[in-house]
Amino acid sequence: MQKLPLIEQLIDAQLDFLDQSFSNAENVQAEFQQFYLWFRKQTLQDLWSFDQINQLIQKQILATPASAFLIEQIAEHIRFALVHPSNENTKIEDVISVLTIDQIAQYVASKSGHRQRLIKAVVNNPAFSAMITQLIQHSIQDYLDNSVIAKSVPGVSRFMKMGKSVLENVTDTNLDDAIAKYLQKNILKLSQMSESVLNQHFDDEKLYHFQANLWHKIKSMPLAVLKNYIEVQDLPKTVAMGHDIWDHIRQTDYLKQQVHDGVYAWYIRNQQHTFDQLLRDLNIDASLIEHELSHLLNPIIQQLISQDYLRGRARLYLEKFYYSENTLKILNIE
């Protein structure tokens, strides 16, 4: 394409004008504010459909696996937080309000119905019954074999063993088996007793005071105590295991349907809301957008100008415009 002097001069003049205009931070801020004034008045349904939002989330979050680098960075950030030097001098009560702890304690203590149902489910579980049976058996056997009285009083140990032997001969059964059968026969009654005892020990008032006492024991501990319960050196492995769980569930039809329906419900509720309202729901107000974000964007635009990126992209389209057939006719250039 033959370069024409007049058109080249017009293009250069316009590019100089754009450079001069956008090198002024006030102009950049004014343009951004004008754009935001327009954007904040648009409703969600004016710009994006439900299908567009859903497909974006499904593709970028559910269909896209996390990279090995991302997993590594998550583990590294957790490790950094756990080993940070300030953890040694920062107490638990410095970062958690006692009022919050008290509210949690009151809330948990007040859920007596939930707590009683949980206790009932636990004590009636076969695993709990088996544990109680074994515990009682071992306790009785331990008492017979290692009783303080049997050890300290001469002859008592032999008497207890003899009594056990006589009982086994009379009943024609092993004492351990007899105890086991008795416990199995009466396990329902034992479970009911366990449930009653647990409910007595975990009533609303006792549970509240238990939580309060626990808080007073731990509040002065440094945050570094967390390292006693989290193996820092195992973080790459534990974070990877957490990712394995997510990596499987993100591919299930269950989660895909949950996300689809959740996004749809949100979209229906908000489709007629303006972006100004949607941003306020996210605790982002107009001043943050108009001032803070524009200050962040201005250095980027200045870099675009100084590196001639903006000038190069603008020239591409100006050349297409000025050398188009219609523009040449307007300028009366053949």
Rank of each mutant, 00 (worst) to 15 (best):
S110M: 00
S110R: 05
Q116L: 02
I119R: 09
V122N: 06
N125F: 12
A127I: 14
Q134V: 09
I136S: 00
Q137T: 07
S139K: 12
Y143H: 06
Y143S: 13
N146L: 09
I149W: 15
S152I: 15
V153F: 15
S157Q: 15
S157E: 15
F159H: 11
F159N: 13
M162D: 08
K164W: 03
S165D: 08
L167Y: 12
L167P: 07
L167G: 15
E168R: 01
N169L: 10
D176A: 11
D177K: 02
D177R: 05
A178H: 05
K181S: 14
Y182R: 04
N186M: 04
L188C: 14
L190T: 06
S191L: 07
Q192G: 10
M193C: 05
S194N: 00
S196L: 06
S196W: 10
V197G: 13
N199E: 10
H201F: 09
D204C: 06
L207G: 01
L214R: 03
W215Q: 01
W215L: 01
I218V: 08
K219N: 06
S220T: 02
P222C: 09
L223W: 02
A224P: 07
L226F: 14
L226A: 10
E231S: 15
D234C: 07
P236G: 07
V239H: 04
H243Y: 15
D244Y: 09
I245Q: 09
W246C: 15
D247G: 07
